[in-house]
Design a protein around this nucleic acid. Structure first.
Lengths: 351, 351
DNA sequence: CTGAAAGCGCTAACAA
DNA sequence: TTGTTAGCGCTTTCAG
């Protein structure tokens, strides 16, 4: 910087002012500095700027796994949002590993990033103290625990309601839920230890619980009965799991005229499972997913699914985070729920 | 750090030594410092460390688009590799935007990251000077231009060869290539402006050209004839494009007993396109893809495809980059090709 | 083995 | 408006 100042015949302070787009500077000086910068090919040293300014213009995004299309698409939306605001993003994939999840939180103390967008998967009640602090934080996904920070949530209720309304209007009476969690049924009130759930229930199950409840509520509101036998609990949330789950339903002799798969991958598998058994979609069975992945629009039949509006989720989360960074402190806890909406395609057309 | 030193009754230098795991320190002192660090909840300030040490322990990964499953899976492998070495990763998605691609290179001058892994998509001949410099760099993907840095390449030739061998051994005689580029045919030598290619041919096309050539070479080596009419050029490289391309072939009355789709998404579409027309896979037509995406193993029929060994690509790229960082300078240009191999599944079983 | 002290390159008070 | 200067928190000689 000193070199630039010398070359331009000004002080380093002026160079700094120029570099930081500060006003009150003669056009002549601005031009001279610009020339010197170009001449010398000068670029600000990020480390020095970070140290002095106390900011890095870097955000950290902590998500379970980029290989899950949902998170890849979400991450892409975050990168775009962050860039729009001049921020870079350190992506951390926690691979469904609790320690890594905690570590990515703990390391915020080094102030490598100005704020964290955390999509917790395995943190649970009791971990709240880990998140204590005044550094900017936004939590994503289901509310697994009472994080002391703003929480941007998927509109599970709105989504489930739209699905139920759509399917009932289409004349469906027996709706199977693939990815559902039986323990969420009112008869057996929300279990403490969900069956098969490791300590610190994974968000897969949690998403399952939340969406199952949302579905049940929507059905109740609509006055439609729910048959517990149609709630299929797959082993995981991949397409193979959906395929197996729907086959099991069929093998058990269950009859249904619609399947609500609680995420798109499950729905992809359901589509395959139904085809395996010679059932036509949507004629024999309608299928609705949840996530609205890009590929879901491209498949055959194209998938009717709930669009959680990822882009808006990303926008709200980044905006909240930047506001916190600006303020210099954590915003109060509170949930911002982005209403989800239904996208009707071939697997369950609007009419 | 001064606080820690005071609390432990030692000098800041000793604290620094402790924090950086330097040897020659009495066990007692180590323990005292550890206690003080724990007591005060001290964490190193990254900005200060970066400034002083001249390193950030951050890598930058610049890829076209996380929504493309291939890159998402690749990115995940990079994150894992980087973490294994104690590095974080700034992910930059260039969205097929040449300016962003160049910008992500240019910004390396700020030394925010210690090195760059660049998967160029739109840079082209003439852009080499942009990459000049002594900072650590590894280029990924097809060799679009002569980057002055190590280049980790996908084993297109080995992959194509394995596919050709496999299909010929299975008795296939008319192999369609979806995603192929006619201009790569020897009759019309490599065109300067590929049809439909914007200036600075996108890597999609380049991958297409490279893989088409690899296929043609493999066919020639095997003494098998190639029918130019079976080279289908889709509009893009998504599943929809594959579906349309195979339909067009069928509509044109072409007959073929195998399809080599130059990436998995195209192959997914080909599978659908064939099903649309009542053709069975693999009985009527065998289908082979390229990429070995996770989901390709889960679909129905599961996809036979070329595995580029992404994990190894990530490992080699990160290792080269870290070696450069260690050395303090750019490694010489040169290509490391990771041999690809075939994974046989239902869409074209081994026998 | 331990401690004192000199900066790393920049920003922001403050003075002019 | 522009220039001078004191650190930001850490690492790393170099003496002891």
């Amino acid at each position: 910087m000193a070199d630039v100042a010398r070359a331009a015949g000004v002080s380093v302070a002026s160079v700094s002012n120029y570099l930081n787009h500060r006003p009150y500077m003669t056009e002549a000086m601005r031009a001279r500095i610009a020339a010197a910068v170009a001449d010398l090919g000068y670029q600000v040293d990020a480390a020095a700027r970070n140290l002095r300014s106390g900011q890095t213009r870097l955000l950290k995004l902590s998500i379970p796994d980029l290989r899950q299309l949902y998170f890849a698409e979400l991450a892409e939306d975050f990168l775009a949002q962050a860039r729009a605001h001049g921020y870079g993003v350190i992506v951390e994939s926690t691979s469904n590993n609790r320690d890594r999840e905690l570590e990515s939180v703990r390391s915020m103390g080094t102030r490598l990033a100005d704020g964290l967008i955390l999509s917790p998967q395995l943190m649970t009640h009791g971990d709240e103290p880990m998140l204590a602090g005044d550094w900017p934080l936004v939590v994503l996904g289901e509310r697994l625990f009472d994080a002391p920070a703003p929480h941007v949530a998927i509109g599970n209720r709105a989504g489930a309601k739209a699905v139920v309304r759509h399917l009932l209007a289409a004349g469906c009476r027996r709706i199977a839920v693939v990815g559902g969690v039986r323990a969420a049924l009112p008869a057996r009130p929300a279990a403490v230890g969900l069956p098969g759930a490791p300590a610190g229930a994974p968000a897969e199950l949690s998403s399952g619980v939340v969406r199952t409840r949302a579905f049940l509520d929507a059905m109740r509101e609509a006055g439609a009965p729910v048959d517990a036998r149609l709630i299929a609990e797959p082993e995981g949330w991949g397409s193979q799991d959906g395929r197996r789950a729907v086959r099991r339903l069929l093998d058990a002799g269950e009859r249904f005229d619609a399947v609500f798969a609680l995420n798109d991958l499950l729905a992809w598998g359901v589509l395959r499972g139904l085809r395996d058994r010679g059932l036509r979609v949507p004629e024999d069975v309608r299928v609705v997913g949840f996530d609205n992945l890009d590929e879901s629009a491209a498949m055959s039949p194209s998938l009717t699914t709930v669009d959680p509006h990822r882009r808006q989720i990303a926008r709200l989360a980044v905006e909240s985070l930047l506001a916190q960074i600006e303020e210099g402190r954590r915003a109060p806890a509170g949930t911002i729920e982005v209403p989800a909406s239904l996208v009707c395609r071939e697997s369950s057309p609007a009419r």
